[in-house]
Amino acid sequence: MATPTFLKTLLVPALMGMTGLAIAHGNVTPQEVDTGKLPELGEEVRMENPFREGNELDKFNAEAVKVGESAYAGNCAGCHGIRAMSGGLTPDLRELTVWDDEYFINRVRNGTDRGMPSWKKTLDQNAMWAIKTYVESLPKPE
């Protein structure tokens, strides 16, 4: 049975639109992260950002921001936007108020059911906390 022309007219744009959504998800091929001069945090997952000013390893804050900027650009910006400024498909990471440290580390390590991959096999917690430190260093939107 032949497909009616009007159905083809609807089907083609719909399929093209879905392709656009798949491409819009971004490049999630993990990029290696050089954690530079950051101290090794070990295997036990920390529930608080050790590099944040006022925390135990805050003397590494500037290095963590530098490492985090590079790690973010290579692994996060494809979906979450350059300098964490979302284009609308994902949240603007600079504006998240419920994004405490425990929420962050669990979400990044385990991914989400809405498309964010799990990063626990590709990024160590040094890289994850460096990314969080970088995002926190960005100015909030006005």
Rank of each mutant, 00 (worst) to 15 (best):
D34F: 09
G115E: 09
C76R: 00
P139D: 14
F6R: 11
L138P: 04
V12C: 00
Y72C: 10
A71W: 03
K37V: 12
E40I: 06
T133K: 08
Q31C: 01
K120E: 10
E63G: 00
G115T: 10
T9I: 14
L123C: 03
R109E: 07
E56N: 11
G78Y: 00
L123N: 01
K37N: 14
A130C: 05
V98C: 00
A84V: 07
P91L: 04
K121V: 10
D100C: 02
G54E: 04
I131E: 05
I23F: 12
V67M: 00
V12N: 01
D58Q: 15
V135Q: 08
M128Y: 05
Y134F: 14
L138A: 09
F60Y: 15
E32K: 05
S118T: 11
L15Q: 04
G68L: 09
E102C: 03
L7N: 01
I131C: 09
H25R: 13
V12F: 08
I23V: 15
T97G: 12
L38C: 10
E102K: 14
K121W: 13
E95I: 09
G87L: 11
T5Y: 09
P141T: 11
M18I: 15
E43A: 14
V67C: 01
D100M: 08
M128T: 11
T3C: 05
A84Y: 03
F6D: 11
L15A: 15
S118Y: 08
R109Q: 12
Y134C: 04
G54S: 02
P50M: 05
D34N: 15
V12L: 10
T112E: 02
I23T: 09
K120M: 12
G36I: 02
D113V: 13
D100V: 10
L93H: 00
N55V: 03
E40R: 03
V12T: 08
L38Y: 06
Y72W: 15
T112R: 04
A84T: 06
M1G: 07
G17Q: 02
G42Q: 12
N106L: 15
S86N: 08
K132N: 14
P117H: 11
V135I: 15
G78S: 07
D113L: 12
T9L: 12
M16C: 07
E43F: 08
T3V: 15
G115N: 10
D101C: 02
V67A: 02
K120Y: 11
A22W: 12
L57N: 06
R52F: 03
P13R: 06
T133S: 13
V28Y: 10
Q31Y: 02
N126E: 13
G88S: 09
G26S: 00
Y134D: 02
D101H: 05
D100F: 11
K59F: 11
E48I: 14
L10S: 02
V135F: 05
T9D: 00
E44W: 05
M47Q: 14
T133N: 07
Q125V: 12
E95F: 03
N27L: 04
I131L: 09
R52S: 08
F104K: 00
L138C: 09
